[in-house]
Amino acid sequence: MDQNSKTAKESVVTMTELVLPNDTNMFGNLMGGRLMYWMDIAAALSAMKHCGTPVVTASVDNISFENPIKLGNAVHIQARVSRAFNTSMEIFMSVWGEDALHQYKYKSNEAYFTFVALDPNGKPRKVPNLIPETEDEVKLFEGALRRRQVRLILGGKMQPNDATELKALFTK
């Protein structure tokens, strides 16, 4: 591994929050916006660990909530870099709740955020390469290029015909 590369495990951040009354909606569930705020912080910390520079959020992929997190439960957010591109990084997050009273953990959701590294002048700067090591890390790494192409197409920065990784899924 060269000095311009890092492993996914080097970027892992696990953040834990307690769901308090001010964090909930009228049903006693954690508000989605509050969770997204915490996820943005965890993802930024992971991206900063990877590149060692300030970062900004570039995009947030679809966030679907599988299970609500209740008042009084803990929220655990694990973030790690799934792929590094030139100046941007895709961060994969898994979120789960923990009911301490009944002694169980449950999955809440997963999401991908994209961050861009900045130089001292606020301009994008090159980030270290990512070396996936585990089977899960390789799957996330390989899928990241397709997810990036979807983001670029939806953002108007790529023409669908130029999305070779996506097209390969549908043509032989």
Rank of each mutant, 00 (worst) to 15 (best):
Y37K: 13
G28C: 11
T57N: 09
T16A: 07
G33D: 09
M39W: 06
M31S: 10
E10A: 15
T24S: 14
E10L: 06
T16K: 15
F27E: 02
T24P: 13
A44V: 00
A58S: 13
T57G: 08
V13W: 03
G32M: 02
W38P: 02
H50A: 10
T53M: 10
I69Y: 01
V19E: 06
N67R: 07
G32E: 06
G32N: 07
L30Y: 14
A44S: 14
H50D: 03
K49S: 02
N62W: 00
V56E: 03
F27L: 15
A44P: 02
V56A: 09
W38V: 02
A47Q: 01
L35C: 03
F65C: 08
D23H: 15
T14W: 05
S11F: 02
P68T: 11
L18K: 14
M48F: 04
A47H: 11
S11Y: 03
F27C: 07
T53D: 05
A42M: 08
S59C: 08
T53H: 13
M39D: 05
V12A: 07
V12R: 14
D40W: 03
T53W: 12
C51K: 04
N62C: 09
T57I: 08
M31P: 01
M26S: 13
W38A: 02
L20E: 07
M36I: 05
S59G: 08
L18E: 12
T24C: 15
T24L: 04
T24W: 15
I69A: 05
A47V: 02
T53Y: 11
P68L: 12
V55E: 03
A58K: 10
L30T: 07
R34I: 12
M15A: 06
A44M: 06
G33F: 03
S64G: 04
P21A: 10
A58V: 14
T57K: 11
L30F: 12
E66S: 11
T57W: 00
G32T: 09
L45W: 11
K9R: 15
S64Q: 07
N62F: 11
L30R: 13
E17D: 10
G28E: 12
W38Y: 11
K49H: 09
K49F: 01
G33S: 05
M48W: 00
P21V: 09
I63S: 01
D40A: 08
A43G: 15
M31Y: 13
S46W: 09
L18T: 14
L18G: 01
G32P: 14
V60Y: 00
A43F: 07
L30N: 05
M36Q: 15
T24A: 04
M15R: 13
R34C: 08
E17S: 12
T16Q: 15
M39P: 08
L18F: 10
A47N: 05
A44I: 00
R34Q: 14
L18N: 05
E66G: 00
I41T: 15
N67G: 03
I41P: 05
T24Q: 14
R34P: 09
N25D: 14
C51E: 06
A44N: 02
G32L: 04
W38I: 03
V55G: 01
M15I: 04
M39F: 00
A42F: 12
R34M: 11
A44L: 00
E10N: 13
Y37E: 10
M31A: 11
S11E: 04
E17A: 03
A47T: 06
M39Y: 08
N62D: 06
M31V: 03
T16F: 01
N29T: 03
L30Q: 06
N62M: 12
Y37S: 11
M36D: 09
